[in-house]
Design a binder for these strands. Structure first.
Lengths: 184, 184
DNA sequence: GTCCGCATGTAAGGCGTTACATGATTAA
DNA sequence: TTAATCATGTAACGCCTTACATGCGGAC
């Protein structure tokens, strides 16, 4: 499906949403069209094929179902195998590479995590997340300090944008940890 | 090359870097491998084909050149046409869609902007950037206020992550504007 | 009876990823 | 002379994007 893990961002979102409750492709399209989740995708040409792939992998199962009317519609629900894949995917440890290349996927994993894995693994995930980000920020700052005066102004500002973005993520994670722990 | 604009993120980076100074593919690979710019790509399987495409489009031109040694190496330099394309690409107005789907590409455009377009267009770009982000943040907050109590905890926290991320970008832009204006 | 919303798709194309391939040159 | 580094690629694959296609049901 996707390179390292077997789950592209879109597939992960689909699997997570269908885990939350059985849905049709159209339900998900509407969700993507009307909520911020839509930043993941907004085209049927991605969603329907992705659902097919998930079904072929036996991670979801489509059933002919009816909504309010009796139009043809396929309601997908997650399988036991799909649950297992989702759990394993969400439980994977965070690497430096994830932080550099797949930060948004980490957030997506987090978004489903409490319902799939429960509270404690979620908190641990955020702790790892914050730690990896701190390490990466340290790297970036070291680099910036070394070349600050050599860089074109906008290049430097763009790099600072990246650093501040990571710092914001770490702050957010620590706030989220506090909030999750106060709710236990 | 890419959908709306004719320049994928990688191609934009390549064109911008070659605009800054003539380079070989290997130079750029090293740059990607050793600087934060590398978050764009790190594989020769992407870089060399992209350079070929840019050359076929006549936006860059490869010349056999020698570095310190006399190994075969191709030094690429930007053409007049390439300069024009780069200018036009960087000068494109910012849309809401850019903010939702291509935020990182906007930052990349910004990174080359002062050298390609000069200071005033760069400041205007940042003003537009901040304004579009403010609008999007308002949308997201409106949505969040409507469904806050219905969302699973991690889902809400993930959404807040997105909102705070955008807010940080707007703050950064305003700081960058001040800095650019104080340097004129 | 026509138009809009529901619901599911297909087709073409592009680009990035991983992995592998190839040779030439310098340092040990 | 062996290994590492320089330097440039190719091949297979997967997924997303845009655009187009289809057909039913309800509302007016």
């Amino acid at each position: 499906m996707a390179q390292e893990t077997g789950l592209s961002r879109l597939s992960l979102a689909l699997l997570g949403l269908i885990f939350q409750q059985p849905q049709t492709g159209y339900d998900i399209r509407r969700l993507f069209a009307t909520t911020p989740l839509g930043h993941i995708s907004n085209s049927p040409g991605a969603i329907y094929p992705a659902l097919k792939r998930l079904e072929q992998a036996r991670w979801i199962r489509g059933k002919a179902g009816q909504g309010k009317t009796r139009r043809r519609r396929v309601v997908y629900e997650i399988t036991a195998q799909g649950r297992k894949v989702l759990e394993q995917h969400l439980a994977r440890p965070i690497t430096q590479g994830d932080v550099v290349w797949h930060l948004d996927e980490l957030i997506l994993r987090f978004a489903f995590m409490d319902q799939v894995l429960g509270g404690e693994p979620t908190v641990r995930f955020l702790q790892d997340y914050a730690r990896e980000i701190d390490a990466h920020v340290a790297d970036l700052r070291r680099y910036l300090d070394g070349v600050r005066d050599l860089m074109p102004t906008c290049g430097r500002l763009a790099l600072e944008n990246g650093i501040e973005s990571y710092e914001m993520h770490a702050q957010w994670a620590r706030r989220a940890i506090r909030e999750l722990q106060s709710n236990v």
